[in-house]
Design a protein around this nucleic acid. Structure first.
Lengths: 150, 150
DNA sequence: ACACTTTATATCGCATGCGATATAATTTTT
DNA sequence: AAAAATTATATCGCATGCGATATAAAGTGT
C-alpha cells in the first residue's frame, strides 16, 4: 500500500474502533437514561457491582482511564447519591469508593440492559470468538505499549 | 450466562471497543502533536485529503459524527489556518469546507505516521481479515440501527 | 403564492478524556 | 531521622461528543 493510500480513512485500523465505540454508546444511552446515568458511570458501576470498596486508582486501571478522568466522574456519582468515598485506614492517600444502597439498587434496574443490546447472541459464535481473541490481543498489546512509556 | 454475569465488565462486547479506541488515540497523540492537531482533526483531514471541498454534513456522515460536534471542530481548524469555509452556490445552506495550502502541506507531514503505529503489519493476515470483516459487519449493523431511529 | 415541512448549520449546556500541574501521604535513600 | 523520590488524588484548561434548541434556506402541498 502506498504512503498516501495508508492515509485514507477506510484503510485505518483505528477508525472502526473509534466509530463502533461511539455507536455502541449511543445504543446504550436510552437505557441508561432510565437509570439517570451515563455510559462511563455505568462502567464504574459494573466494576463496583463485581467488587465493592475499591480505590480510585484501581477503578481507573480497570477501565484504563486516567485518574484525572475518574475523579470528577466519581464526584458526580457521589453528588447523585450512587457512591460514597472514604479514606483508607491503611493508606491515607487512598480514597475507597463504595456503593450506596441506591447504587446497589441500580444493579437490579440495569439487569435487563445487556439482553436489550447487540451482544454475544447477534453474531456467529466462531466469528465472535475470533473477534474477542483479537480484541484481547490488541488490548494487551496496547496496554504494554502504554506501560512502556511510563 | 446469568443476568448478573452479563453485567461484568469482562463479558461486555462494548468495553474492548471503548478501551481500544482510546488507547489507539493515545498512540497517535505524540505524532499528531508534531503537526499541532488532534485525532478528530486528523480524521477530518483524512476525509479532505481524499476529496477536497466537502460539505460539513458530508464530513460528519463519513466520520459518523453529529454536525454539532463537527461544526466547532471545523471552527478551530479554520482558526488554525488548516481549512476555509464558504457557502455553496447551489444550496446556500451548505458550507463547503476546503483545505488551505497549509492543510494540504500537512498531508506530507502526516505521511510517515501510519507506518509508525500499530497497523496491518502487526497481526497475522488471516486474523486481521476476520477482524476487519467483523468490524465492517458490526459497523453497518450499528449504522442501520442508528438510521432506524431517525 | 403561501403555509408547512424538511434540511444544513450553528449555539448552548453538560459530561467525558487527557496533558500538565499541585498537594498530601508513603516509601526509599542516604 | 531528614531529604529525595514515588504514589494517590485532585484541580485546571482545553478539545471533543452529543442531546436539545435556534435559524436560515430549500422543498412540498394545496
Amino acid at each position: 500500500m502506498s504512503t498516501y493510500e495508508q492515509l485514507k480513512l477506510e484503510n485505518q485500523l483505528c477508525f472502526p474502533f473509534y466509530a463502533i465505540s461511539r455507536l455502541i454508546t449511543r445504543q446504550y444511552q436510552p437505557h441508561l437514561d432510565e437509570l439517570g446515568i451515563t455510559y462511563p458511570q455505568y462502567l464504574v458501576l459494573m466494576v463496583l457491582w463485581e467488587n465493592d470498596h475499591q480505590a480510585v486508582n484501581t477503578i481507573a486501571q480497570k477501565l484504563i482511564l486516567n485518574t484525572n478522568t475518574v475523579t470528577p466522574l466519581l464526584k458526580r456519582m457521589q453528588k447523585m447519591g450512587i457512591i460514597t468515598k472514604s479514606k483508607s485506614n491503611k493508606d491515607e492517600r487512598k480514597m475507597i469508593v463504595s456503593l450506596t444502597p441506591y447504587g446497589l439498587l441500580l444493579k437490579d434496574k440495569a439487569a435487563h440492559i445487556p439482553s436489550k443490546l447487540i451482544g454475544v447472541d447477534d453474531f456467529k459464535p466462531e466469528q465472535l470468538e475470533k473477534m474477542q481473541k483479537f480484541q484481547k490481543q490488541l488490548l494487551s498489546f496496547l496496554k504494554a505499549m502504554q506501560e512502556e512509556k511510563e
